[in-house]
Design a protein around this nucleic acid. Structure first.
Lengths: 155, 155
DNA sequence: CAAGCGTAGTTGAGCGTTGAACTATTCCGC
DNA sequence: GCGGAATAGTTCAACGCTCAACTACGCTTG
């Protein structure tokens, strides 16, 4: 094992600043969206992914990957979105095991209603606080980490 | 309301990179710690906070603030940590409404066991991927966001 | 074409979080 | 020092997530 490589004071500060800011930002955006639209950030991501897909439909497992979700979690989530009438399931003709999640018109309308609230939150809590240089730094940092955490997701 | 200030392509990229990297990193650290020590990141933060407090004890609400937790959430979490014998509750003499959460010796030992695993994860997934300049940029960005999200938490 | 393996997705139980309602105590103004 | 507001913390029910077990289908190899 060897002696743990403890963080020095500078690293501690950087880690704490990143951790707290990430948790607070994610939490605030989620709460804001949820309270003002009834749609959690997780559900919003599902609706966005479907709305951008050809014919507004996607395989369950593709959708799960895209939304950083386990299959089980996505399956539960889609069931709940189905109850709201925003998504419906449809068997995938080319592969009898597969299911397609399809965004309904009602689901698309719900997304259209939530999108301005969401983007306003991201502006207010994030971009309005940063200079263009900081935004560029944020993108570079994010992509560096992404290259390690999940290379396939890097643009 | 006015027209929403939609994100342009650069902003989209920056936002997605930040969002995915933050979610993946938090998720991976939490899973890694949980599977290797049986202690979730949330519980770990509680143990750390207590271990750093005078006499290893803190008021419930202070502890909740420190851990970015609601009072309800913390109350549940402390109950579960109590069941493990890692924390105990004690009435706060100076204020009959208050409760103190106290870290037990067993709790401290559990923390000592988990700390090397945790720091190794943070190194491997975060610091080892970054240059010193990027670490400094990460700290500055985090503190900028923190100044907006929760000014009292900025160093 | 059958056996076995891999893949897609669902289900159910258990745990953790949320938000609101609740109890108990202290603080404040009169 | 009394009545009402504020604060500290807990509890409950509803919801969401996790992990493991399960069903169903497809693919491969003999």
């Amino acid at each position: 094992m060897g002696e743990p490589r403890w963080l020095d004071a500078e690293e501690q500060k950087a880690w704490r600043a990143w951790l707290y800011s990430a948790q607070l930002l994610l939490d605030r955006l989620d709460r804001d969206l949820t309270h003002r639209t009834g749609i959690s950030h997780a559900y919003y991501e599902i609706l966005v992914a479907l709305s951008e897909a050809p014919e507004r439909m996607m395989r369950m497992s593709e959708l799960a990957d895209r939304c950083l979700s386990s299959r089980s979690r996505l399956s539960h989530a889609v069931s709940r979105l189905e109850e709201r009438g925003w998504v419906r399931r449809q068997v995938y003709a080319e592969d009898g095991r597969g299911q397609l999640a399809v965004l309904t018109e009602e689901g698309f309308a719900a997304l259209e209603g939530a999108a301005p609230i969401h983007v306003e939150g991201v502006r207010r809590e994030l971009f309005d606080q940063l200079t263009p240089e900081q935004v560029e730094g944020m993108r570079a940092l994010g992509e560096t980490l992404l290259r390690h955490l999940d290379p396939d997701r890097v643009p």
